[in-house]
């Protein structure tokens, strides 16, 4: 009995994993069962946990506490939030689904308004700043580094001197490429197109290498579960 209780569920997990991998050979009935089981379990989990983790602790309990503390206005404001949130249920019917526009309108509007300045700071101004000065506060176009290279000509010093200007030039031409990607005969725009593509291809190549690595890691993780966790468990239980 002890063997069954410790091994039963992990074995289910292994069988389900293998069922999913059977899709690699060809689409089959078992894979479809696993796929639909996954959808059902995900949604079921979302419903149960939304109740336990959001509705009760974020709505019901604060409303009760605020009422008992005499903060009626605040409690009332939270109830309005709850009622507006319930408008999402209107999605179950085509006729009433327009009601769900209210909570969507409020959340989208609020965070759109709130995030304008933060986006400016984090995506634009700090990124431009970093193209002028590096985090240590030195200029990115630091030509003194070339003097260092000429007095001590090593590969490391050459790279040190070149990296800053290469980043600055890269950012500028990539921006030009994106903002003026339509047909344009301006000399600067025309000549910067090819080097911009070189930067982008190197960048995307790097991103591909990383992405490949990530995808393989996921498979390694599953193999780790089957070949070290599960087999270990079976060996120990037998």
């Amino acid at each position: 009995m002890g063997f069954i209780s410790t091994v039963f569920w992990p074995t289910i997990a292994v069988i389900l994993s293998l069922t999913v991998y059977s899709f690699l050979w060809k689409d089959n009935f078992l894979y479809k069962v696993a796929e639909h089981l996954f959808i059902g379990v995900t949604v079921g989990y979302t419903i149960g946990s939304a109740w336990n983790q959001i509705i009760i602790p974020k709505l019901v309990e604060p409303v009760i506490r605020n009422f008992s503390d005499g903060k009626y206005l605040l409690a009332f404001w939270l109830i309005i939030g709850g009622v507006l949130g319930m408008f999402y249920f209107s999605r179950f019917s085509e006729k009433t689904s327009w009601l769900s526009r209210y909570p969507i309108a409020i959340t989208v509007g609020f965070y759109a308004g709130y995030s304008i300045v933060p986006i400016w700071i984090s995506y634009v101004s700090k990124q431009f700043h970093a193209t002028i000065l590096n985090p240590a506060g030195e200029p990115m176009l630091n030509f003194k580094l070339f003097n260092v290279f000429f007095s001590n000509p090593t590969y490391a010093n050459l790279l040190k001197a070149l990296n800053g200007p290469l980043i600055v030039i890269g950012v500028i031409i990539v921006l030009i490429y994106f903002f003026f990607s339509f047909k344009n005969d301006n000399f600067i725009i025309k000549t910067s197109r090819t080097p911009a593509l070189v930067y982008l291809m190197l960048g995307f190549g790097g991103a591909f290498g990383y992405t490949f690595m990530a995808r393989i890691s996921l498979f390694i993780g599953r193999m780790n579960f089957i070949f070290s966790d599960w087999i270990g468990l079976i060996k120990n239980s037998l």
């Binding site: 986006i119 400016w120 984090s122 995506y123 634009v124 990124q127 431009f128 970093a130 193209t131 290469l166 980043i167 600055v168 030039i169 890269g170 950012v171 031409i173 990539v174 921006l175 490429y177 994106f178 903002f179 070189v198 930067y199 982008l200 190197l202 960048g203 995307f204 790097g206 991103a207």
Partner: peptide, 14 residues
């Protein structure tokens, strides 16, 4: 190169 390319893209996205 990746920093330069991605930075250009990020500024555009921002």
């Amino acid at each position: 190169p990746t920093v330069a390319a991605m930075r250009g893209i990020k500024i555009g996205i921002g």
